[in-house]
Design a protein around this nucleic acid. Structure first.
Length: 544
RNA sequence: GCCCACGUAGCUCAGGGGAUAGAGCACUUGCCUCCGGAGCAAGGGGUCGCAGGUUCGAAUCCUGCCGUGGGCGCCA
């Protein structure tokens, strides 16, 4: 990250508190000093609402109080502050010295892609991020793609913020669907009709043809589906550290243990021949069945055992993040209820619900249906648009919105395509460096270059945006919102294209010291783009 | 009926207590004697779904209503 930018923040907040004290103003209860980057340039680099938020309780006029704070802050200037002013209804605005921005550039180059933007908010806290978890009854489809892109990006963001992250895939390898899948494979192998409610997709026919004579359809089919899923996810650069099996939980007795634990907690009871979870005591709408009257487990019970198992592995201070599609949102309350019944810390389990994607090709909807056989597989999406475009497009918007993913648009190699636009910015920066080499420019080491000559508005804009990257990454990680990085990348890429257009780096009319400084700026911007793209799992190509 | 999310420019979406609400596409108009014009710049375009409330301040928080998507099984 740019470590001193965080220090500057801290010192500004401290100074504001001191200024308030000097003005004889006591902060009201619950007051938190607001310090933010103003939307408008003329309002400086940082802005505080200190006067606005405290004036009423202190019986003061906000604008006058702000003026008083500004005078005091002007006399006791925090480090790196060039100017303190008052604006609007009573904001106190700070303008930083230009040297701050030059330090950002030097930092980015020194830290490089591996370390720039890295921070330690997590302090090694263990997190298990579970995502995709498609049934092992067929290929992953386009809808799983969003969960895959999202879960992996969240994992990457948390890693960059100092969490110890494990990516996990839960395999529902027992139960009704698994049985139907095995029966469908066996039927297809024997040239017979699929059973009622069975699977009919083309892949069933294809896989059945591969299945060796006499193979156990259940076991062989599970392996076949998993291999396919792993391969497709791998082609999108999504890899899991652990694959957790539901059947293994049954075999190990973990489910019976969980049942016993729920019983001991008084959270389970028998009725109508079934065993119920008293989930309504823990915030759910109604009680839920754990064991059906025919003795079979419901889907819920193994899932509770699974989350209990994960919690044990994550440890007392650990965190579980489970990514579910919107079609599972109804299960959040019962899972949290079960965890509460087991005495777990309710904040230890976070369920991230992603809204469903609408898939189109050239404006026409393509339906995602796993059961009809008319499935759009994730493999097809990747084949059509590429892994980078697929990931970036899936992460373009907040997970709370149900976006439209147009395959044709995502695949287009045009600047209107945000993936291409951002990657192109990186490629252009690389081409500048290549050009400098081709022209025989002897590069000074970054430490020797005078960055003070970087004062063009285009250059300043790049530096300002670059200085915000660590905050963007921190916010994206804490809010589990990778699309914040996507938004930053689009803005930053725009700044790079503007710079590219207006500020030549190498050429007969460019002074040598400016060439040197701009080459360093180019390197820094490249690091910023690569770091941002990296947290999304998207590559930063040197040429397009 | 109940639960969750969403409703911001013509379209796709950022912003999610702060100052004059932003970007891309589309539209209008400029810019190629130098690093990729696959670009850059300027302009027009808004009752932030509607109505109340909280607040010094609401697109943002709360309540109700309307609309859209998803969910509401002893299916998974």
């Amino acid at each position: 990250m740019c470590p001193f930018m965080a220090d500057i923040r801290t010192s500004l907040v401290d100074s504001l508190h001191a200024a308030l004290a000097a003005a004889g103003v006591e902060a009201p209860d619950g007051f938190r000093m607001g310090l933010e980057r103003p939307a408008r340039r003329e309002h400086g680099d940082w802005s505080s609402n200190a006067a606005l938020a405290t004036a009423k309780a202190a019986g003061r006029n906000p604008r006058e109080l702000a003026a008083e704070l500004a005078v005091w802050l002007g006399d006791n200037k925090p480090d790196d502050v060039a100017e303190v002013s008052v604006a609007g209804p009573g904001f106190v605005n700070f303008k930083l010295a230009p040297s701050c921005l030059h330090r950002v550039v030097a930092d980015a180059v020194a830290a490089g892609v591996d370390r720039f933007g890295r921070q330690n908010l997590g302090q090694g806290r263990k997190v298990i991020v579970e995502f995709v978890s498609a049934n092992p009854t067929g290929p992953v489809h386009a809808g799983h793609g969003r969960g895959a892109a999202y879960g992996d990006a969240v994992a990457r963001l948390l890693q960059r913020c100092g969490y110890e992250v494990q990516r996990e895939f839960y395999i529902n390898d027992r139960g009704t669907q698994m049985g139907l899948y095995a029966a469908s494979l066996a039927a297809a192998r024997a040239g017979e009709q699929a059973p009622e409610n069975g699977y009919n997709g083309q892949y069933i026919a294809d896989w059945a043809a591969e299945m060796p004579q006499g193979a156990d359809a259940r076991h062989w089919g599970r392996q076949r589906a998993l291999a396919d899923q792993r391969e497709v996810l791998g082609s999108m650069a999504v890899a899991f550290d652990t694959w957790s099996s539901e059947q293994a939980l049954v075999d190990s007795g973990a489910i019976d243990d969980t049942l016993a634990a729920l019983g001991e907690a008084g959270a389970a009871y028998e009725a109508d021949g079934a065993l119920w979870l008293r989930s309504s005591d823990y915030g759910d709408d109604k009680d839920r069945v754990l064991v059906k009257s025919d003795g079979e487990y419901t889907y819920l019970l193994p899932d509770i055992a699974y989350h209990r198992d994960k919690l044990g592995r994550a440890g007392a201070a650990g965190l579980l993040i489970t990514v579910w599609g919107a079609d599972h949102h109804g299960y959040v309350a019962r899972m949290k209820a079960a965890m509460a019944a087991l005495g777990c810390d309710p904040t230890a389990l976070e369920v991230a619900v992603t809204q469903l994607v609408r898939l189109e090709r050239d404006g026409e909807e393509v339906r995602l249906s796993k059961r009809t056989g008319d499935i759009i597989e994730l493999r097809e999406v990747i084949d059509e648009v590429g892994a980078d475009a697929a990931r970036f497009t899936y992460l373009l918007q907040s997970m709370d919105t149900a976006p439209t993913f147009d395959l044709a648009k995502a695949a287009a190699q045009v600047m209107e395509n945000p993936v291409f636009y951002v990657q192109m910015a990186h490629a252009r920066l690389c081409s500048i460096a290549a050009r400098a080499r081709a022209e025989g420019v002897a590069r000074q080491s970054a430490g020797e270059v005078d960055l003070g000559v970087l004062s063009h508005e285009r250059e300043l804009e790049i530096m300002r945006r670059l200085s915000a990257l660590d905050e963007v990454i921190a916010a994206a990680a804490e809010e589990r919102a990778p699309h914040r990085v996507t938004a930053w990348l689009r803005d930053f890429a725009a700044a790079v294209h503007s710079f590219y257009h207006d500020c030549y780096v190498v050429g007969p009319r460019i002074a040598p010291e400016l060439t040197q400084a701009r080459l360093v700026l180019t390197d820094a911007a490249r690091v910023g783009l690569a770091v941002g793209l990296g947290t999304l799992g998207v590559s930063a190509p040197e040429s397009m």
